[in-house]
Design a protein around this nucleic acid. Sequence first.
RNA 1: CGGGGAGUGGCGCAGCCUGGUAGCGCACCUGCUUUGGGAGCAGGGGGCCGCUGGUUCAAAUCCAGUCUCCCCGACCA
Length: 580
Amino acid sequence: MKLSKYYLPTLKETPTDAELESHKLMLKAGMIRKVTAGVYSYLPLGFKVLKKVEEIVREEMNRAGAQEIKLPIIQPAKLWQESGRWGDFGPEMFKLSDRKENLFALGPTHEEIITDLVRNELNSYKDLPLTLYQINDKFRDEIRPRHGVMRSREFLMKDAYSFHTSQESLDETYQDMYDAYGRVFDRLGLDWVAVEAPSGLMGGGYSQEFMALADEGAEEIVVCSKCDYASNVEIAKYQTSSNEEKTDLKKTKEVATPGKETIDAVSNYLDIPSWKIVKTFIYRTDEGLVAALVGGDDDLEEMKLINHLGTPKVEMVSTESEIKEITGADFGSIGPVGLDIPIYADLDIKSLTNFTVGANKTGYHLKNVNWEKDIPNAKFINLRKVKRGDRCHNCGTKLDFHRSIEVGQLFQLGKKYSDSLEGKYQDQQGELNSYIMGCYGIGISRLVPAIIQQNYDNQGIKWTNSVTPFSMALIVLDADVSKTRKLGNKLYKGLNKRGYDVLLDDRSSSPGVKFNDADLIGIPVKIIIGPRGLDEGIIEVETRTGEKSEIGIDSGKTETILDELEQAISKPEAGTNTPV
RNA sequence: CGGGGAGUGGCGCAGCCUGGUAGCGCACCUGCUUUGGGAGCAGGGGGCCGCUGGUUCAAAUCCAGUCUCCCCGACCA
């Protein structure tokens, strides 16, 4: 490609609305442009990289035995109502209607559509297992789109779905997908880790997320450095403390705590350590109200409550009037004693004795509360958020915390969709069974900023060889002068013939512009043809990582120069950017 | 949903307080000179000042409403 003809509007100044480095760089490098909040156009450079990522994903999915299909973006509301997710997804879905006022959604995911497809065609156990996938645009009306195409409302995703007659068969395909994902992310040069994950709105059972490590990532994960345990913090397991207190149970006492509404305030006022005060949260669930209790120093992890209750949604009761109606007190004084609703308490506070809780009477707390005597109906489950210092539940090693970008997820869906949508096959005995399903996503458009986030410097992007938009930049200085221009064109043609995808910078701009653009857009190798070099009988090769070499051109034979060039850029360090 | 900020040529911004014919830098076009890490000179094109209404002889500027975008938060028990 000749740069003089290429639509590459690079920016010198950073657009002010970009926060994250990958977002800034994609704008500056002329890869994307914003159309409206969370919606982007891809320009030639960005689209080229996107397609390279897409192709790697496609190759590995095909290798894993999945078959590519394409499902519609427009989906009838009917199917979503059938699965019960029309309401669950709610405002996340872009909805529209046709001229007959039928309701539709722009697909945020495709479980309904694929189950519908398969249930009509696939009736025999002989046709299972089956894995289908597509690479298609998805639409989610995010609460807050962020960071360019990292979290956008229209995005490109690979989603695969598998259908099985048994858990064993699902396990097998799940493992195949896991392996395929590993190959994809390795080929992309990512520093990644797979973690246990909540299955959220997808429903179902076991799930893992693939995370690209990045300090600016939105997701927090814990990783054990000794064994192979790794998890999203939302469901992270850890060793619960079990230090039994050997003290006499004292008599419960109501104490005035006027205006003391926070744990810290109550702790200071009553001179009680904060870990001996128990926090109470009231949640509204599909099953009615529940109370959730954690230690004063701990945070409650909603996902753990959700998983335990098995309901897709819980909502904290958060208005003054409601809380007063339920507990009889204002925020700051609510507690579990005497509440006539199910009470779930964090395992870590099971061993507490003579602890303090709100009295359900504004301005008062109860001291010396004990489980059996005062809250006999409490059920103990893991409820609190994992925190620094927690130890691995497998091996007891201290857990490491990392931030990361979610780039893929595997789900074992089980029968959630096949049951609700009547997706059934006949088994050997002639009986009807629901398929057991899995689903597997990769955020293709998110992968591009994720890769950049792990590979950039002050000059710009540093592409890995597998996704670089061009294998090299052939920079012709003094391009209006025939000497350099002629040689540049010759080498350009020769390299193209040898199969390289070369960006020829034949613009008449000054050298600095060319060097900076090549570095900004992240091309792994620069080949520099300039008058100074020609006088010395050389052209220069410089990698994006800064290694320089020279090639003699005195022979005057193009093929010889090309041979030497090929040799120079095939050196292991040239143009590679091996991640840690 | 709550809080903060911003909407002025493609991009980055000034002008607004104190109303009086819309400006700067980059980018773009033409010409000449330039070419090893974002060149110089000269000339030039391009803006419903987010939108609607109001005040006024006169509104980018003042007032009201509205839309959009960005950032932070979405907790506290």
